[in-house]
């Protein structure tokens, strides 16, 4: 009977109203803001856009931002994978606490995150005052930026991997042990192919946040133009100088990274939803 198939919200007018309101709100809250970034960046033409990007300080900010991401991502890749392996492959006291602890950066305000590092490693800080004697300055220079970025982005890889690895279980890996494979070989040949896509998305998310972190970096950077200005800080600086088009030119680069992140997510979900398709074995890749 057709009436048995009926589910809540199937009435045409309800359905149309809900879809229309969702689409309108999505346009207003998400799509138009994204369009505005590029419209503003190009509002004085391509030549001005190119000039804004080619500016000495903008180029330096891009370089510093990429440098920070290049240090942060590998560190958090190793940490996230180790932690996911630990909490999904073993039971031990304190396991649940550990899973909660890695969520701290998600709950802590970025400004507080920056403050935590400033207090400890700043000139008058507990560790910082000791380092000052050796002429090592971490805060208000690039190492501080890297440190807070590592803090802010450390949950992403682990958060992507834990649910997946939990769900996949350990049988294949245990079979590997029985067959006498080494730990590294088991990880590379059995675990890695299974978690590859989630791992890639975790890295993409880590990278997106590392490139875009503002609050925490703002606290420890010192905002020295051409020295400790990352791209998001550069956006703020230009905006406060009333160089709106310049600010949006830099912002459009960050927005482009955000769009790539969304595309990567859609791609990873598409790969994961496809029926089992053993990927061709390519050892070294």
């Amino acid at each position: 009977m057709a009436s048995q198939q009926h589910r809540v919200g199937d009435t045409p007018w309800i359905r149309r109203t809900l879809i229309a309101s969702a689409l309108i709100l999505t346009m207003l809250m998400l799509v138009i803001p994204l369009v505005v970034i590029f419209a503003q960046a190009l509002s004085s033409g391509w030549a001005t856009f190119a000039e804004n990007i080619g500016n000495e300080y903008t180029l330096h900010a891009i370089g510093l931002t990429l440098f920070v991401a290049a240090l942060t991502v590998p560190l958090n890749l190793v940490f996230g994978t180790s932690l996911a392996w630990l909490v999904t492959r073993f039971r031990f006291p304190g396991r649940k606490l550990l899973i909660t602890l890695i969520d701290i950066p998600f709950a802590v305000s970025p400004v507080v995150a920056g403050l935590l590092y400033l207090l400890l490693y700043g000139r008058n800080g507990w560790v910082g005052s000791w380092l000052t004697e050796y002429d090592i300055q971490l805060m208000f220079s690039w190492p501080g930026i890297v440190m807070v970025t590592v803090f802010v982005t450390c949950p992403f890889v682990a958060r992507e991997l834990i649910p997946l690895m939990q769900q996949q279980g350990t049988e294949e890996e245990e079979a590997g042990v029985v067959l006498g494979a080494s730990g590294w070989r088991i990880f590379r040949r059995i675990t890695l192919p299974n978690i590859k896509w989630a791992l890639i998305y975790g890295v993409v998310l880590t990278n997106a946040r590392a490139v875009g972190e503002f609050g925490a970096v703002s606290v420890v950077s010192g905002n020295i133009r051409g020295q400790t200005n990352t791209l998001p800080l550069h956006v703020e600086l230009l905006y406060q100088d009333y160089n709106i088009v310049g600010a949006f030119a830099s912002a459009s680069l960050l927005a482009a990274i955000a769009i790539l992140t969304l595309v990567a997510k859609a791609f990873v979900e598409w790969r994961q939803s496809r029926p089992e398709h053993p990927a061709p074995e390519k050892g070294g890749v």
Partner: peptide, 26 residues
């Protein structure tokens, strides 16, 4: 539908400073 599903995550991917200057401009 797929586009809406993808764009929902934009706020997590977009740096907050960029969101800030965009919203104030709008």
């Amino acid at each position: 539908k797929r586009l809406v599903d993808a764009v929902v995550d934009l706020p997590f991917a977009l740096p907050t400073a960029v969101a800030g200057i965009t919203l104030v401009t709008l």
